[in-house]
Design a binder for these strands. Structure first.
Lengths: 129, 129
DNA sequence: CTGAATCCTTCGGGATACTG
DNA sequence: CAGTATCCCGAAGGATTCAG
């Protein structure tokens, strides 16, 4: 099919749609945005992140960090110490991602009243059926 | 916790974090972006969308449309005809969402080479273990 | 301390069949 | 035509345990 008529579909599908989707999945994922947000402030250790992110499990933190590292959005540094110490930091690429994410967040902030109102209307109509 | 030190976390968590997440879920969802993209071109009927979106099931199309309608991103119009006809169109709100989504897509397009290269490096390192 | 491995539950989402 | 209802599977993700 031809997406050129829609700028949004065009840019989403030009080149590698799978790559685009994989990044959307990161952004849409529950933890990655907050991990990058924390790491762009300053480097964090594993346990530090674990404590800073309410509700995340060790497993999910590990997976999130590996995925973000694989995409080059964060970096991992291991210190040869006892006890072991590992620091994670955001890369320039990871920090640059915050710009479009902030744009999206800003859109939500700007329209949240509108969205909430529509939901209330739709839900009310559904209830009265 | 205090997110004010990170602009990204701050704006993602000010107001209603759940609302923000729900919108991220839409954007991160497999079908919603393409549905909005098609509807911002022109109104489509249900079956038209079904045929225009390869791989989507009736069930998922229905769910996607309901969700988008609930958020006020698209509109549904039922024509009292035989056979039944239903048209979906993007609302102004839905069309406005394409702007930050395009910003995100543009970021991916701008950095996809970098991401792919990092992945290749990381994967190669993992293989040689 | 920083994970990896395992188990187990939940849930998104596909296939299919039925309805107004 | 435009859905709804049901079944079912695979993947996501939490809890727990083991290891370097």
């Amino acid at each position: 099919m031809d997406y050129s008529a829609s700028p949004m579909l065009h840019i989403c599908n030009e080149g590698d749609p799978a790559l685009f989707r994989s990044i959307l999945d990161r952004v849409g994922s529950k933890w990655t945005v907050i991990v990058i947000g924390l790491l762009e402030q300053r480097p964090h250790r594993f346990t530090e992140l674990l404590n800073a992110i309410p509700g995340i499990s060790r497993r999910m933190l590990t997976i999130s960090l590996r995925t973000l590292e694989r995409d080059g959005l964060i970096e991992r540094e291991v210190f040869a110490e006892v006890p072991p110490r590992v620091e994670y930091r955001a890369t320039a690429l990871g920090i640059s991602l915050s710009e479009p994410v902030i744009a999206l967040a800003t859109w939500v902030a700007d329209h949240k009243a509108e969205i909430a109102a529509t939901r209330a209307t739709v839900d009310a109509a559904a209830d009265s059926e």
